[in-house]
Each structure stands twice: as C-alpha cells, then as structure tokens.
Nucleic acid binder design. Sequence first.
DNA 1: TCTGGGGTCCTAGGACCC
DNA 2: TCTGGGGTCCTAGGACCC
Length: 405
Amino acid sequence: MLSLPPVNKQRTPELKGKPVITGKERGIVAAASYEAKARGVKRGMRLFEVRQVCKDAVILPSDYETYSLFSMRIFEILRHFSPDVEEYSIDEAFVDLTGLRRSFHGSYGQIAEKIRQTVEKELGFTVSVGVSLSKVLAKIGSKHNKPNGCTIIPGRDIHIYLETLPVESVWGIGANTAAFLNKHRITTALQFAEKDETFIMKYLSQPYQGIWHELNGRSVFPVVTETKNSYQSISKAKTFTPPADNEIFIFAQLSKNLENACIKARRYKLAATRLIVFIRSQDFKSYGVEIRLSPPSAYPYNLMVPLKEGFIRVYKAGILYRQTGVVLAGLVPDDGSQYSLFDDSTKIVKMANIYEAVDRLSGKYGKHTVQHGSSLPTKQQAQHEGDRGDAPIRKSEMFKGENAR
DNA sequence: TCTGGGGTCCTAGGACCC
DNA sequence: TCTGGGGTCCTAGGACCC
C-alpha cells in the first residue's frame, strides 16, 4: 500500500511547515497537512472550528484536478514496478509485489523503498509505503510511519504492530463493530486477530471474517486491477443553512440535485432504473423513498414526475430540513435502445437530442447554463422576501419540455 | 467529531414460485 | 382453503471507506 501526502505543497514551497488545509469551497476540511493534523484538525471538521484550534491555518480550495493529475502519474510509476496496481482512491494504491524479487534483485522491502525513492525523485514529494502479507496489514504499515515512511511487516512481526493498535483503527472496522468487539473484551487489533475462529464465524459477517484472516497474514482480499470507469449509483446532496421548511425552496434544491446527478450519469452514458429521494431534518433524521423508473432515464424532464412523487411522500410541512439529496441507482448502460413496446420511442429520441444540446451548451458556457424551471427558487432569501431578489439567473433560461424540440 | 459529500458492499427478511 | 419445504429474487437498511 502506498499513500500520498494529504496536501500537495510541492508547488508552493512557502507553505512548507505550515498547517495547510483544503476544502475552502465546501466549508469543511477535505484534507489537512500533517502540521494541521498535529494541531487537532480533522477531516470533515467545519472551517470555523479549524480557526478555533489552529488560528494560523492556511485554508485553500481543494484543487482536485491538480491532485488527481499527480495521482495518475504515481499510478503510472507504480505500473513500472508491477502490472498489478489497484487505484484504491485518489491518494492510495495497492501494488502486488508477489514474485518480483527475482527481477529486482532484492527483498520486498527493498523494492518498496525503491518505489518510494522513484516517486520522490520524479514528482518531488514523498509518499508512505507499507509492505506486508495482506492488504489490511499493508495498510497498517503505511499508516505506521506516516510522512515519508516505509514500513515492512513480515509475518513474524505482525504481533508487534497489532499489539498497541486500537481495533477500530483497522481498515474496515468502524465504530459500531468496535463497540461490539469491546463488549467482548477485544480492544486491540492483536486481541481481535488472536480470537478463535469459532467466535469470529459465529458473531461476525463475511467482511469481518476476511479482515480477521488478513490480520493473521492470510491474504483474502485480492488486489483489484481493473480501473473503474462506471458507477453503481450516482448521488448528489446538498446541505443548506439555515435549515428551511419552505416547500418550494426544498423542492428546488432537490430538483437541482437531480439535474446534477443526471449530468454526471449522462457523462458516463448511464441511465437509472431507480430514483431515491431523501431529505434530512434538522435533528439529522433521514427520510427517503425509492421509485422504480421505466424506462431507465438520465433526463430530468422524465424524472421530474417521480421526483415530485417522492418529494410528496417524504416532505412534511412544519419540519425544518437541512439537506436534500437524490440517488440515481440501478444504473444501466444507456445505448439509447432499451425501451419497451409501451414507451413512446419518438419522444425518447427527442429527449435525447434536447439533452445532448443542453450538455453541449453547458460544456461551452458553464454548468447550469440551461436549467429546469423547477430548480430556480434555490435562494432561501428569495423565498423569504417573496421575490427572486438578487438570484443570479441572468444566464439561465426557463426550460419547459413541452416547447423544446 | 453534534454532522459534508460521494461512494461500495453485505445481510436479513419479505414476496413469490414450484 | 390450509399446510410443508425449499429456492430465488428483490429491497431496505446497516456499516464502512475516502
């Protein structure tokens, strides 16, 4: 396992040594440098809290594009060492080194160290590496010595690394499972690894049984080489402050979520067979419904009726809500051909043409150049004041399916 | 961690069928 | 109309990750 530094400071040396965080545009911490983390900054923390614990924090917008470019270059370097590279996330990768000692004339540890040095030489920043018998152990290794470390965990030393590691720090074990394990007097990763198989089989489900094997040095999670170019689901959600109860405003939020999700789905040539509509109230309770879609679609025009239906089912007047969201699920490839006898095919083709034009315009003039009329009342203030106020709708056009062709 | 956004996979239990 | 047994499919919801 190899992991990138949380914030790329390579291009701006004046930030070296300073607590840097990204996520300015979202109001929460997307990533934090080691210096910031040392001061108590955590991922997901809100920015005003960051300023409380760390006054001199440098807060930058996330530069996703730059970061993912670096990430791609690292993956390329890794593939020079082994064909079996799993791009686990934008800043992490698994590499299967099995059988490579011969060609590199060295131990696995030496290969890993060479990888680390190559990345540093070619890209100018440091990464942490963990080497072991399984993905779970390699991940523990990579976290063990974070900035610029290279940790090798051979089978005979596993217990040394697990002994002091809280069980909830193990990859795949979250708060709920940790709480359960704690009840059975299991608090460290080693106690979990040493628990007898009967207990594991009886009380834990499959993924945790896998983790248990991996902690014991038996690899059961394969390195997945296929890079993902599709999705099982696409979701869009947005939190708004202050919480609101205005029906029109909340539906407009949902409508916007739907348009955004559809744009992404169309980009990947996918259509949804299920639409999930959810809203979250101020007290953090979530209400959602799922609606089957036939035919599958990624066009807001087709999904507006189901969206409304879902909204009516989840929305209760007089409750304050803080978030809305949609999920396009059951995604199927949209080759524009699979509709049933009962679907109006000429209408479907028309719709495809319209949205093709919409996507082209958006590509040219920016997202939401053209948007659904129902998405417009998304300014809270506008609703309160009974008009659209200063809502910037200059670029937007009202767009009604009936007249479009 | 009193709370952002975007994902994945697994499981229990109901529906339905023979 | 009731009673068995067993299989598959689907869905809601849980848990976890970055």
